[in-house]
Computed example of a mutant assay.
Amino acid sequence: MSNLEDDPSLDDLLAPSHRARLVQLLSTLSGADVELVEDPDESVSPLEFNLDTLGWLKTTLPKERHRAAIQLFELFLLYAGKYRLAANLHLDVTEASYVELQQRNAALQASEARYKKLSEQLQQQVEEQVKVIEKAQQQLYESARLRAVGQLAAGVAHEVNTPLGYIGSNLAVAGDYLDEIEAKLSLDDDLAIVFEDFRALLGESRSGAQRIAGIVLDLRTFSNIDQAEFTSCDLNALLTTACHLLQAEHHQTLSIKSHLSELPELEGHPAKLSQAFYNVLDNAAKAIDGEGVINVESRFRDGVWEINIEDNGCGMPEEVMARVFEPFFTTRSVGAGTGLGLSVARDILTAHRGSVLLRSHPGQGTCVTLCFRLD
């Protein structure tokens, strides 16, 4: 349909079929010939709409009836024009509403996209904050654990070493007294057996006291209560201490085979390195469940310190290996593990510019390699 600002033509107002029908009806009503013509002559009258001539009407009617036919035709054109105007207005309003709806829809889609993006950003921020909180909890847990071990070691060293010195000294003096008494007495066979048993008892007591002193020393080395900053570390000594503590925890029943090569000292935090070694060893001990062997190796080559801790225990499937470094992930029953062992060990290695490599197969054991590199 034409624009409202255009001057309508006869075809715009009445379709050819409608014009033909109107001319036929006028002919029937008037009983005369009525015809629309394109070329004007003396026998025709103009059909006007809004002061514009749209065509000419030719009839055989008398002048007054001819004029009435013209007016009737123009009346039809007037109402056709009004209909056309209303239709155009409706179309324009509909198109404007459709354009407005499209704009609103585009605005809603843009708003939805913004909110979706904002939601994704918020979700990402929440996940990052959760990771930060979990890491902070992990660090607090391990810091508290290290402090507790350090305080325990300090307390044991203070409370045990002094009476242990008395015990060791007294046992040595008791041995000397026993030798003097034996030299002055004439011993029969029964009394000689008693003296022999007495010496064995004193020897076992001295051995027990030395073992206690060794455990105290291992605890001090493990917690390193006298050293808080990075210092030169003997990795073999720290590794040996961790093995001793693990053996003591398992009542000397673990089978640990050590193959330690000579290593240069490494700048690091002794207590944290000891914690990393102990965590890996503790995992290996739980994997063999007292029935296997743990092999511990150390070597230095091409500027890399390597500590291998391997067990012949149950091993791990791939789906477990993919999650072993996640904080608080554990396959053990409730209360049997915190799920922080390997996660903490990896963080400690990372802080020392190192890395943790893991190899494992179900039923074939696990090998954990701790690597430290020169700067």
Score class of each variant (00 low, 15 high):
residue 2 S to F: 09
residue 338 T to H: 11
residue 186 S to G: 07
residue 248 A to P: 02
residue 373 R to E: 10
residue 342 L to R: 02
residue 144 A to K: 09
residue 351 A to H: 10
residue 364 Q to A: 07
residue 178 L to Q: 02
residue 142 E to N: 10
residue 191 L to Q: 15
residue 101 L to A: 14
residue 113 A to E: 13
residue 229 E to S: 14
residue 13 L to D: 02
residue 285 A to C: 06
residue 158 H to A: 08
residue 297 E to M: 12
residue 215 I to A: 08
residue 68 A to D: 13
residue 100 E to D: 12
residue 339 G to Q: 03
residue 39 D to R: 12
residue 219 L to Q: 00
residue 4 L to N: 04
residue 61 L to Y: 05
residue 7 D to E: 15
residue 83 Y to P: 15
residue 373 R to Y: 12
residue 174 A to D: 00
residue 299 R to I: 04
residue 186 S to W: 06
residue 221 T to G: 04
residue 374 L to E: 14
residue 353 R to D: 08
residue 15 A to H: 15
residue 112 E to D: 14
residue 272 K to G: 09
residue 311 D to E: 04
residue 172 A to Y: 09
residue 178 L to C: 07
residue 364 Q to P: 01
residue 8 P to F: 02
residue 370 L to S: 00
residue 309 I to W: 00
residue 46 P to H: 06
residue 178 L to T: 02
residue 75 L to D: 11
residue 265 E to K: 08
residue 178 L to P: 04
residue 367 C to P: 09
residue 290 G to K: 00
residue 216 V to T: 07
residue 277 F to E: 01
residue 193 I to C: 06
residue 73 F to T: 09
residue 184 K to Y: 12
residue 121 Q to N: 06
residue 7 D to P: 15
residue 55 G to S: 04
residue 138 Q to K: 14
residue 361 H to V: 13
residue 370 L to V: 06
residue 270 P to W: 01
residue 215 I to D: 08
residue 52 D to E: 15
residue 176 D to W: 11
residue 39 D to S: 10
residue 258 S to W: 11
residue 185 L to V: 09
residue 107 A to M: 07
residue 91 L to S: 13
residue 86 A to G: 15
residue 39 D to N: 07
residue 147 R to N: 14
residue 175 G to T: 02
residue 28 T to A: 12
residue 330 T to A: 01
residue 367 C to K: 03
residue 298 S to V: 08
residue 202 L to F: 00
residue 148 A to N: 07
residue 212 I to N: 06
residue 183 A to I: 07
residue 303 G to Y: 05
residue 278 Y to C: 03
residue 224 N to T: 06
residue 294 I to R: 00
residue 273 L to N: 00
residue 159 E to S: 05
residue 252 Q to P: 14
residue 329 F to P: 00
residue 179 D to R: 03
residue 243 C to N: 03
residue 5 E to C: 02
residue 201 L to W: 03
residue 146 L to R: 05
residue 108 L to Q: 14
residue 280 V to I: 05
residue 122 L to V: 12
residue 358 L to W: 03
residue 316 M to V: 15
residue 161 N to G: 04
residue 192 A to R: 11
residue 132 V to F: 01
residue 277 F to A: 02
residue 371 C to Q: 09
residue 331 T to M: 12
residue 233 C to G: 10
residue 211 R to E: 10
residue 40 P to E: 06
residue 187 L to I: 13
residue 300 F to T: 08
residue 3 N to K: 11
residue 50 N to F: 13
residue 280 V to D: 03
residue 65 R to P: 09
residue 350 T to Q: 05
residue 234 D to Q: 05
residue 66 H to M: 06
residue 359 R to V: 14
residue 332 R to W: 05
residue 16 P to I: 15
residue 369 T to C: 01
residue 375 D to M: 01
residue 245 L to I: 06
residue 146 L to T: 03
residue 112 E to M: 10
residue 314 C to W: 13
residue 91 L to T: 13
residue 113 A to S: 06
residue 333 S to A: 09
residue 340 L to C: 01
residue 257 K to D: 05
residue 229 E to L: 08
residue 353 R to H: 07
residue 138 Q to W: 11
residue 185 L to H: 07
residue 250 H to L: 08
residue 307 I to G: 03
residue 118 L to S: 11
residue 301 R to E: 08
